[in-house]
């Protein structure tokens, strides 16, 4: 358990629905088995694109600031919001820059392309290899449990409210089987003209 990516714990998941996407995370911050905080969200919003960062908490916070800086610079240069596809490539190259001394994170990106209206999700490994997924992506110490839940609960073309229920049930039941994550949940449901943020009240053990 001296593995950097499983010291602090965490669960993240993103799903595609009908003209919508959802991204969710747990709220735990731990040091090995000790829970330090139950108010540690792992999802960050840049323009209308979201990133979930699970892994070593110090790298989560560092990267969230790096991406804030880079997206701000992009906005100034381009005078427009960044699209999820563009942001995903920015994440990828930022991570690969540290190929031989990586950030210990497993990010997930979710958003809707403002031009095409197409939902977009993808995941990465710690050095930036992109996993384009049509259905769902998972990450964090709870990834096995999340794969089991998502593979059995998810179906194509879910409406926003059904997608919320699906991603929430997937997250909650997965994190209840992982001692390293839990302590609440945070879900964003993203449609073209509305973003809904919901906090999940869950068991705290």
């Amino acid at each position: 358990m001296s593995d950097p990516s499983s010291i602090n714990g965490g669960a993240i998941v993103a799903m595609v629905g009908k003209d919508c996407v959802a991204i969710a995370c747990d709220m735990r911050l731990g040091m090995q088995a000790l829970t330090v905080s139950n108010d540690f969200p792992k999802i960050y919003q840049y323009n209308n694109t979201f990133i979930g960062l699970a892994g070593l908490a110090t790298d989560v916070l560092t990267l969230s600031e790096v991406f804030r800086y880079k997206v701000n610079m992009y906005n100034l240069r381009e005078e427009r919001d960044i699209e999820p596809e563009t942001f995903a490539n920015l994440v990828s190259s930022t991570l690969y820059e540290k190929r031989f001394g990586p950030y210990f994170v497993g990010p997930i990106v979710a958003g809707i392309n403002s031009k095409t209206g197409k939902p977009y999700i993808c995941g990465f490994d710690l050095i930036g290899c992109i996993n384009f997924a049509k259905d769902f992506v998972v990450g964090g110490t709870t990834s096995h449990q999340l794969f089991g839940m998502c593979e059995s609960l998810w179906e194509p073309d879910l409406e926003p409210e059904d997608l919320f229920e699906t991603i929430s049930q997937a997250l909650m039941n997965a994190q209840d089987r992982d001692a390293m994550s839990g302590a609440g949940g945070l879900v964003y449901i993203i449609t073209k003209d509305k973003i809904v943020k919901r906090l999940l009240k869950t068991r705290q053990d």
């Binding site: 089991g148 839940m149 593979e151 059995s152 609960l153 049930q169 909650m172 039941n173 997965a174 869950t202």
Partner: peptide, 18 residues
């Protein structure tokens, strides 16, 4: 694959988080 199956069973058989 117990780690993939077990949370699904909690949810669907024991109705956890429902």
């Amino acid at each position: 694959a117990a780690s993939l199956l077990m949370p699904f069973l909690d949810n669907q058989v024991n109705k956890k988080n429902q």
